[in-house]
Nucleic acid binder design. Structure first.
Length: 500
RNA sequence: GGCGCGUUCGUCUAGUGGCCUAGGACACCGCCCUCUCAAGGCGGAGAUCACGGGUUCGACUCCCGUACGCGCUACCA
């Protein structure tokens, strides 16, 4: 196996890690892990206007959460200014770069003019031929120069891309781009080349929005006397309208998916399928991904991000969790929703599990076994962890009856009687578990001569406030006898009031 | 405007000249299971392989053109 493979993920810290960036990071990571190579994290923070420390933290946090561990870095371009300066000077003395004293305003003006005349807005190279005298004059005026690359104006530059194939560019279409800004900070195309060389990167794996930048970089590699790495340009990730995925399309921050209750494995698995595939298979463990990933199998065409499929996949992985794991994962969501207190305050032993009239909670009502059971009965009903809130909130506060539920099931003939009977049956002395509860309630339906559903639905609404809930008998068990009886009574009372 | 990349069911994709009357997954529809909702099982519908020309005995697969989409064309990355 060809080793000493070195790849990198090089985000610019101008915001949170987004889906597209995460996919790029993932493919780099998979490639490195597959080949037993090195994965490097490099922060491209040369845009002083937009880069922030918070963004760096957020990117690191998101990558850690996804499990994309890096072996070197994070390096920062702003720590490497000396290197760029040195290499720029080299090109300067070799005549492969030159100083440009044109101001951004002048450039903008000329660009606009060129566009109006329907010409290519290339730099006119006026500073390339500056005489020593003219240069000194500019310096005397206090003008700070930018450094431009002296781009060859004939010949071709070929990019042999692992995913796109052989792509040919004519040098004549390139212009003398700025390598180093007037403030001494390098631009992307220059910094990336120096970095990838210094870090001995063997494979540059990045979004195909950079494909058009690649000839500029190759020219730079050649001018600097560096060896050229392999390139693999990944197709873009699009929104439903086929434009580049952005906040406009909804949540794009990895962090947002984490907060919603997506599992890292689900996100990783889903992202892997955007632009890559392995036959008919859709579900992969992380190890399988590492084992089966290859750049040769990456597709050329862009992919539309489908949050629905992601959600489905997340549900699959939630169902794969052990009950204990799920119970642990679910709790923070209940806390965040204000359903249970952040710091548990245990009740005296004999009162544990007691239902609090009025519904205000000031203590931890249930123990770990209770949460475990909750996880058990909700596991196949949630597709993201945050779904637990809507599915189980009725456990934690007084019942709020949905008007629809009242109309459609409670306000039916015979319902108060059914509920009254249920109170009687459930008041009897027996071990209050779902099996017993089910047996007694089924018996009740039979005695009443009703189909089971006809008695279970009113009870469900009385106890949960709605027509949809986790399984009834388990729900009643978890609620406890006191709370159940009280809610049943409450529903009867509600109906009486409505009648009167 | 110039340059570049892309185009198979709504979406992600399989497919590398005959195995394709185009396979899988999500979503959708129906049935089964069933205390609701899910989950699960079974089945259905859904793609003249962007379009037009070639090459070939034979093309989704190779070549050319057109259309459309996207990207680059910044002292952003």
């Amino acid at each position: 196996m060809a080793n000493n493979i070195r790849v990198r993920f090089a985000p610019s810290p101008t915001g949170y890690l987004h889906i597209g960036g995460a996919r790029t990071a993932l493919f780099n990571w998979l490639y490195a892990r597959h080949h037993g190579g090195v994965f490097i994290l490099r922060i491209e923070d040369t845009d002083r206007e937009r880069s922030t420390e918070e963004a760096i933290d957020a990117i690191i946090e998101a990558m850690s959460w996804l499990g994309l561990s890096w072996d070197e870095g994070p390096y920062r371009q702003m720590d490497r200014l000396g290197r760029y300066h040195k290499e720029a000077q080299r090109l300067l003395v070799e005549g492969k770069a030159y100083k440009c004293y044109c101001t951004p305003e002048e450039l903008e003006e000329r660009r606009k003019l060129a566009l109006e005349r329907r010409e290519a807005p290339k730099y006119d190279r006026r500073c390339l031929t500056l005489t020593e005298k003219e240069r000194l004059a500019c310096e005397a005026q206090g003008k700070k120069p930018a450094i431009r690359f002296n781009c060859p104006d004939e010949g071709i530059t070929v990019v042999d891309d692992i995913v796109k194939g052989r792509v040919v560019f004519e040098n004549a279409n390139l212009d003398d781009f700025v390598m180093v800004r007037a403030d001494g900070i390098p631009t992307y195309n220059f910094a990336v080349v120096v970095d990838d060389h210094d870090m001995a990167i063997t494979h540059v794996i990045r979004g195909d929005d950079h494909l058009s930048n690649t000839p500029r970089q190759i020219l730079l590699y050649q001018a600097l006397g560096y060896s050229i790495p392999e390139f693999a340009h990944l197709p873009m990730i699009l929104g439903p309208d086929k434009t580049r995925l952005s906040k406009r399309h909804g949540a794009t921050a990895v962090e947002a998916y984490r907060d919603e209750g997506y599992l890292p494995h689900a996100l990783v698995n889903y992202l892997a399928l955007l632009g890559w595939g392995y036959g008919d298979q859709t579900l992969f463990s992380i190890d399988e991904l590492i084992q089966k990933f290859s750049l040769e199998a990456v597709g050329k065409s862009p992919a539309v991000f489908d949050p629905i499929k992601l959600e489905w996949m997340n549900g699959v992985y939630i169902r794969e969790l052990s009950v204990d794991e799920l119970a642990k994962l679910i709790k923070p969501y209940l806390i965040k929703a204000g359903l249970i207190p952040e710091t548990p305050m245990y009740m005296p032993e004999d009162e544990k599990g007691m239902y609090m009239v009025g519904g205000d909670l000031a203590f931890e009502r249930y123990d770990d076994a209770w949460y475990r059971r909750l996880a058990e009965i909700t596991q196949e009903r949630i597709s993201k962890l945050s779904d637990i809130i809507a599915l189980s909130d009725f456990f934690f506060h007084r019942v709020v009856y949905e008007t629809e539920a009242i109309q459609r099931v409670l306000k039916k003939e015979g319902v108060p009687e059914i509920l009254q009977k249920a109170i009687e049956v459930l008041s009897e002395s027996f071990d209050f578990n779902s099996r017993e509860i089910e047996a007694r309630l089924r018996k009740l339906a039979e005695d009443l001569g009703f189909k089971p559903k006809l008695v279970f639905q009113p009870i469900r609404v009385a106890v949960t406030g709605r027509t949809v809930s986790p399984p009834l008998f388990e729900t009643i068990e978890l609620l406890g006898r006191d709370a159940t009886l009280e809610r049943l009574g409450e529903a009867i009372h509600l109906l009486e009031m409505a009648d009167g």
